[in-house]
Design a binder for these strands. Structure first.
Length: 485
RNA sequence: CGGGAUGUAGUGUAACGGUAGCACGAGACGUUUGGGACGUUUUAGUCCGGGUUCAAAUCCCGGCAUCCCGACCA
């Protein structure tokens, strides 16, 4: 593998991943801090990544009959407080509007941290008969959760997400929806973000406030910590009972609808940065890169030379655009070559095509991969075939690398001593048998910082004869533990 | 919300209680351009409010903000 070109002033990923992350967010032009603590300004390059995620997921949702809606950002406090566990879970991080129009409001308004309450309130009006079910809604919006410690993209006070809300006739149909959403998220991470995550069920203490069951996508960050990257909840009738979402079934019996909710947020972008970035900055998988290819013109000060290069670059640009490649050209000769290359590398553009006198004469380009810096010469005649192919290869290689990294960062242990050793020294994901008792879970967290992340889907029905790694009591399933972001 | 630290130009940093300086950036001009060019020049700053002092970036008080470490978390 060719050498990584380190960037001036960019912390090395291996030196301090947290500093590195902040540097990349700023230097790659993804986001900036704002005047409000914990809120960020998402800049064009960062927002384009979000738009990519929106486009992909939105099309899948719609194919499945999910319809987009928009509910208000304000939720009357009384409405918000109807579901007990839900209030308890969200109250500490609620932003509340008490004044408006120059007067104190008779009833304070919560700024939505999630919309189960408002949306379920409307489901009660909209659902009367089994013929109204299932009803599948989604909204793309912002939500506010006043977290004490914030981190760009990973945990901001305000963030963007989509929240799907559906109601179904029975548990079975609702569970199909929960699993469908989970599958969309998994597919999104694998195919588009080129990240191999863990997928599974949350423990009682980690599940969504008000849910019967929470399923989640967990990303293994290169420092061995866990990033919850999407969730899908089975809410049973917890909210529908409180809000009176009742329908008449075929036999004329009144029944409460079974509900789901599921979401993916701008946190995904944080996972993307962490997973693929390197000492040169951001690395974007071709499928989500706003620009997949940058053509860099190289020329001396001679105007005639510059014009020839600009013309050739324009010619190549058209070939690639016609081949369906998202391409951008950089023929700004006022900046030095090194400067321009470094800027595009920081931004993570998957493939760079260098075009100068050399290439012009040979009717070719020099293609340099962002992920491993390998170079190859591609002749103009096969450009329209080879470049898309090369982008696919990069996408695939990034995914394989992510899968390898995930596996390398997962340890299987059977004793608590090993468990503690891993958490104290290497910091990784740990797969271990657990008794599923909340007190035991809390004790492990207290001592090691590790919490259960998920019970992997293929282990839900496991019935092994193990000893709990924490307390030694009988356990029948192996869970994944890690320190959470 | 608990513990710690810090607020100086767009950014990063220096200045014993005594002339606010340096680097990068940005602008202009010229020379450059196959991995972050160079010269000349211009630009811009002590978080806010009080206090002590002949004199405050520096000391004291209050506020605000940010960062780090914990508890909370898509």
């Amino acid at each position: 593998m060719a050498k990584v070109f380190e960037k001036k002033g960019l912390t090395k990923k291996s030196d301090n991943i947290s500093d590195w992350y902040h540097d990349v967010v700023l230097r790659a032009g993804l986001a900036e801090y704002s005047d409000v603590k914990g809120c960020m300004i998402i800049k064009p390059h960062g927002y384009a990544l979000w738009e990519k995620a929106q486009a992909v997921l939105d099309s899948w949702f719609k194919e499945d009959g999910v319809q987009n809606v928009y509910f208000p950002i304000f939720i009357p406090m009384s409405l918000f407080q109807k579901e007990k566990e839900h209030v308890a879970g969200f109250s500490p991080e609620l932003a509340v509007v008490t004044h408006a129009g120059g007067e104190e409001l008779a009833e304070p308004l919560a700024v939505r941290p999630t919309s189960e309450t408002v949306i379920t309130g409307k489901f009660a009006d909209w659902v009367q008969s089994y013929r109204d079910l299932p009803m599948k809604l989604n909204q793309w919006c912002n939500v506010v959760r006043w977290e004490k410690r914030t981190y760009p993209f990973i945990r901001t006070s305000e963030f963007l997400w989509q929240e799907g809300h559906t109601v179904h006739a029975d548990k079975q149909d609702a569970m199909l929806m929960v699993m469908q959403a989970l599958e969309w998220y998994a597919q999104f991470y694998r195919e588009h973000y080129a990240i191999e995550p863990y997928i599974g069920l949350k423990s009682e203490s980690e599940k969504f406030a008000g849910a019967q069951a929470t399923y989640a996508i967990e990303i293994v960050v290169p420092d061995g910590k866990a990033l919850q990257a999407a969730t899908s909840h089975y809410l049973a009738d917890h909210f529908t009972k409180v809000f009176g979402v009742e329908y008449l079934d075929e036999e004329g019996n009144k029944k409460f609808a079974h509900q789901t909710s599921w979401g993916l947020s701008t946190r995904a972008i944080g996972g993307l940065i962490f997973t693929h970035g390197d000492d040169s900055g951001l690395v974007l998988p071709p499928k989500v890169a706003p620009q997949q290819v940058v053509i860099i013109g190289i020329a001396g000060k001679e105007m005639a030379d510059q014009e020839k290069v600009v013309e050739y670059a324009g010619h190549l640009h058209k070939i690639l655009k016609d081949a369906g490649v998202r391409v951008v050209s950089d023929v700004d000769f006022r900046k030095t070559l090194g400067f321009r290359i470094n800027e595009w590398e920081l931004k993570g553009i998957p493939l760079r095509l260098e075009v100068g006198k050399k290439e012009l004469e040979a009717k070719s380009v020099t293609a340099v991969r962002r992920d491993n810096f390998s170079k190859e010469t591609v002749t103009e005649s096969v450009l329209h075939v080879k470049i898309p192919k090369l982008l696919e290869t990069i996408q695939h290689d990034l995914y394989k690398k992510s899968e390898q990294s995930r596996n390398d960062l997962t340890a299987e242990v059977s004793t608590y001593d090993e468990f503690k050793d891993v958490m104290a020294n290497k910091k990784m994901f740990i797969r271990a048998a657990w008794c599923e008792d909340a007190v035991c879970e809390a004790a492990i967290k207290e001592e090691t910082k590790a919490t259960t992340r998920v019970l992997e889907l293929d282990r839900v029905h496991e019935s092994g004869k193990y000893q709990c790694v924490g307390c030694g009591e009988p356990a029948h399933r192996k869970w994944l533990f890690a320190q959470s972001y």
